[in-house]
Computed example of a mutant assay.
Amino acid sequence: GKTTTTAMIAHAMRASGRDAGYVIGGEAPDFCVHAKRGSDPWLVLEADEYGRAFHHYTPRIAVLTNCESDHLDYYGSQAALEEAFLRYVSTVKPDGALVVGIDAPRAEVLAAKLQVQRADVQIVTASTRTAADYRIESADDSYEVSTPGGVICGSLKQPGEYQRQNAAVALAALEVAGFDGPLAAQALSTFNGVNRRFQLHGEMNDVVVLDDYAHHPTEVSAAIAAARQRWPDRRVVVLFQPHTYTRTAYLIDGFRTCFAGADAVYTVDTYAARAMTGDELNSEQLASEIVAPSARYAGSIAQSAELAADNARAGDLIITMGAGDIGAAGPIIISRLGGTR
């Protein structure tokens, strides 16, 4: 949720009339550009863990949404990754704050370690599931957040528990930064999300086609759950493009079960963003490893899009999913559903 949370915070700051700067690692409809230097003292920066890039900042407020197993091709082990995250949160300025989403267990552990090392840092927690400084509860897309100062009510355009988690963390960071919580929640109700995050491709012949950036098992499961929340009566079909052969290999335990909420899964040729090392799994192998539902290897983006369209039923929801170029499948599906072949 780094990109979405960054965009949420920047959107709320700017909606308050402040010319806050921002650096967002994705395209967001509410922003004309990825980055802008504002005249306000606040800059909202998306910090990336790959290559330890997030060690180069000294934030007044650090936000930690999770510490999932990822980029292990670079870090080598989960322990090394967690040590890098601990160093990131340790870069907070004296008497600064860490806002942490404690629904992610490793993030909560890192916050506890920081509290021991840096008594000067204020630890602020946010959760959808358990007691926290900012506890968000919802009914559909509306929510209530219990905060140290009272209850804040709001709504989101995007469905899913993970979006509510993002909102809870964003509201916590905004209040810690001195912004008005209810006004921030009002701004989040107008937030239009981030491209490739639960983004609608279109609808044709009662088949809805979405695009989502999910490429980690936790993200895949969350995106499918959000789809079920928004469209409970539709059959969910996933076209999944693995992102690198090595990531598929070291996350295979999660990939075996994370698609369980879908009704059908097609795996698409792997997006090989980085070089092969010899310890990998390709997309066809991934399909054979998925426990449920039974997955089918579908080949290239074009081949998988055509296969999904040809097997679609009225009432289906098709999600193109992955961090590579799988978004190109959406227009092919829409076109083929419309009879243009």
Rank of each mutant, 00 (worst) to 15 (best):
P159F: 07
G21A: 05
Y245R: 14
N192Q: 15
R196P: 13
L171C: 10
T267S: 10
S221P: 00
F240Y: 15
L307A: 14
A131S: 13
C258E: 01
F85V: 02
I252S: 10
A287P: 11
Q285P: 04
G193M: 09
T320D: 06
P293I: 05
T91K: 14
D19N: 13
R274Q: 05
D141L: 15
Y250P: 00
C32L: 15
I24L: 08
M321H: 01
C258A: 03
A312D: 00
V265W: 03
P232L: 06
V63Q: 01
D212Q: 09
G26K: 08
V63W: 09
Y50V: 01
L337W: 04
Y88T: 05
L156Y: 03
I136G: 03
S77E: 00
V209E: 15
A97P: 06
G38N: 03
T130C: 12
E108V: 00
H216S: 05
G202V: 07
R196N: 12
K113N: 01
R129N: 07
V121A: 12
M8K: 04
G96V: 03
T270A: 12
V33S: 14
V23N: 01
A173Y: 06
A132G: 02
V237H: 05
P232D: 01
P94R: 12
H56M: 12
E284R: 13
R14A: 05
A295W: 02
A328N: 14
I332Q: 10
A226W: 05
S221T: 14
D325A: 05
R106I: 13
A104N: 15
A177Q: 10
A328F: 10
I290E: 05
Q303W: 07
L200K: 15
G261Q: 05
N192R: 15
A214Y: 09
K2G: 01
I332A: 09
T4Y: 11
A275W: 01
H56W: 14
Y88G: 02
V236N: 08
D325S: 12
G202I: 11
A214G: 08
L183F: 13
I318R: 03
L251K: 08
A275G: 10
A173G: 11
A187L: 03
A131M: 09
Q241G: 03
P148V: 02
W231V: 04
R60T: 13
S69K: 10
G160N: 00
T244S: 05
T277F: 07
E144H: 13
K93C: 09
A295Q: 06
H215W: 01
R256S: 07
A12M: 06
E83F: 03
Q229G: 06
G278L: 02
S304F: 10
S39C: 08
A312L: 00
Y143D: 11
G181Y: 07
R235G: 09
A249P: 00
P331I: 14
